[in-house]
Design a protein around this nucleic acid. Structure first.
Length: 549
DNA sequence: TCTGGGGTCCTAGGACCC
DNA sequence: TCTGGGGTCCTAGGACCC
């Protein structure tokens, strides 16, 4: 708690959906849903237009489609979101060295540490200027909360949404919090709220009244006492910049449950491989391998094995994951598999070398009791459930009868993902609007163009290829190839195809989009005119980290 | 067609050591 | 031999967050 509201919380408004609307002129002012678009997908972000229909984050996409069938359903383009996020974070770093990102679209800033603001009025001015800067540099809107603590700054930005700023004056927090539902407090989710409800506690005021002892009794030591403090508006957590990751994991939910044991094993190998890639690109190694299995009935279990030292050796981690899946009964079907690594250390070559040598021998001759018993128990269970075959490590070669095991995502000829960028040899750049029955529909438009028109091609049209996301504002330097991977220096002027921007009269509004075009003032749409190249740099578009296909 | 993917933190029990 | 704490490591699960 501090006397002046110098903790700032920034939350970008409907971030993913707003980025999509900014890059796709035909979607501005229309309902947009970004998230998993498969049969088991969930909504990551819904635009405000879609929220009117009741669509919200974490909802099954299938349900969203029922509520709002006319929305655009798009797969996320994380590489683009990450780039824009970096630009926003740079603006925050200009205010203070103490910036704590919570996700791509959210961060705390300690204005006091930056010397940017010492009073309420100064803080408000900084917040408003920040919002203007974000808008002029990215074309997007963000909401700002200012308060004397993290909790209240975050509550402030929530109240400010969309496109606003709320400052909570220190001293007023108790009366502000009192009538609010317990769910307002960070750390109160569905389960905790239900516990509290059964104890007759519904509001933050009732929580504070209940007293610490009662909350500890209901919710446990750590949770109870921290929530008791929060309920009184007390929160002295400091803003901490750049924490090291403590774990790395990857997981996949399958469109249909896996029943074939060999397929399950091959997916575990694949996931272990991907996990190691991520581990290595972070320059880390890890000591504990964790396998996650979600069964057909959504019950979830984890199995873990701690190695003698940290490793980033793919073979070692794959073998550990393979041993772990041996001990899991998967009859009935597997919905999700995941592989993770915790106990992260900074990679050293010597550790690794020693580890690679010992890890393989370890299970057989492990002297440490608990490791040996865990292994034995796992193996015994596996034998019972799966028979003799389970006792052996899976064949490293493709198991028989599983040629389809290769994920369509990687091995398939070409997949056209809704929302993703494409280039056509004749018609230029656009994005996939949909595909099916051998055809793919593309809308040809750029962030700065008028809404474009739609064309349909055979899915294997040789003139069509996937492309990098175009920059959100037109680039002045023509000829740079965005796919050349030269990062920031090579801003992607070249995304405009050689043939000119609007071969098919893109300036002509497309039916269905026309009526939405005139309220751009109220939408987070990019308006290139408001951006002056000399004063503020545009979002740069390094083509370096390609988005997943 | 209910329920993604990436994380963090906490609790609790058993093993083990002193 | 019986009884006993405290601390640490490992494993498993659960709640929560974006």
């Amino acid at each position: 708690m501090r006397a002046a509201p110098t903790i700032l919380h920034l939350d970008m408004d409907a971030f993913y959906a707003s980025v999509e609307q900014a890059s796709k002129p035909s979607l501005r002012g229309k309902p947009v849903v970004v998230g998993g678009i498969g049969p088991r997908g969930v909504v990551a972000t819904a635009s405000y237009e879609a929220r009117v229909f009741g669509v919200h984050s974490a909802m099954a996409t299938a349900q969203a489609r029922r509520l709002c069938p006319n929305a655009a359903y798009l797969a996320p383009r994380f590489a683009l979101y990450r780039r824009i996020s970096e630009t926003v974070m740079e603006l925050l770093h200009q205010l203070s060295p103490l910036v704590e990102p919570l996700s791509l679209d959210e961060a705390f800033v300690d204005l006091e540490a930056g010397g940017a603001a010492a009073s309420a009025e100064a803080a408000r001015a900084v917040g408003e200027q920040l919002r203007r800067d974000i808008r002029s540099v990215t074309g997007l809107t963000g909401s700002v909360g200012l308060a004397g603590s993290k909790m209240l700054a975050k509550i402030g930005s929530e109240q400010a949404k969309p496109d606003g700023l709320v400052l909570i004056d220190p001293g007023t927090e108790r009366e502000l919090l009192e009538p609010m539902t317990v769910r307002t407090l960070p750390g109160v989710g569905p389960a905790t709220a239900e516990h509290l409800r059964r104890a007759g506690i519904h509001t933050v005021g009732e929580m504070a009244e209940a007293g610490e002892d009662e909350l500890v009794r209901l919710l446990g030591k750590a949770h109870g006492s921290s929530l008791h403090a929060m309920a009184q508006g007390l929160d002295d957590r400091s803003v901490v910049a750049e924490r090291d990751a403590k774990s790395v994991s990857v997981e996949d939910t399958f469109d249909v449950d896996l029943h074939d044991r060999a397929r399950v094993q091959s997916e575990v190998r694949r996931l272990a491989e991907r996990c190691v890639q991520r581990l290595r690109s972070a320059g880390r190694s890890g000591r504990t391998v964790v396998l996650k299995v979600r069964r057909y009935d959504f019950s979830t279990l984890t199995r873990s094995e701690t190695l003698r030292g940290p490793t980033d050796d793919p073979a070692v981690i794959q073998e550990a994951a393979a041993r772990l899946i041996e001990g899991v009964d998967t009859t009935g079907g597997v919905r999700l598999l995941g592989v993770g690594v915790t106990g992260l250390a900074d990679f050293t070559q010597e550790d690794l070398f020693a580890q690679a040598a010992t890890a393989q021998a370890a299970p057989a001759e492990e002297a440490t009791a608990q490791a040996a018993t865990a292994e034995a128990a796992g193996a015994a269970e596996a034998c019972e459930a799966e028979g003799a075959a389970a006792a052996h490590a899976p064949d490293p070669e493709q198991p028989p009868g599983a040629p389809e095991a290769a994920e369509a995502a990687e091995a398939g000829p070409r997949r056209w993902v809704p929302g993703h960028d494409v280039r056509h040899a004749e018609f230029g750049t656009g994005w996939v609007q949909g595909s099916g029955v051998g055809r793919v529909t593309v809308r040809f438009e750029q962030p700065w163009s008028a809404p474009g028109r739609v064309r349909t091609f055979p899915v294997d049209d040789p003139d069509l290829e996937s492309a990098e996301p175009p920059p959100l504002v037109p680039q002045e330097r023509p000829g740079a190839d965005p796919s050349s991977g030269t990062a920031r220096a090579g801003r992607a002027g070249g995304t405009r195809h050689a043939g000119g921007g609007d071969p098919e009269g893109g300036a002509e509004p497309v039916a269905g989009a026309a009526e939405t075009r005139d309220d751009q003032s109220s939408s987070p749409a990019i308006r290139p005119k408001s951006w002056s190249p000399s004063s503020s740099p545009p979002v740069s578009m390094p083509g370096a980290d390609a988005s997943s296909p």
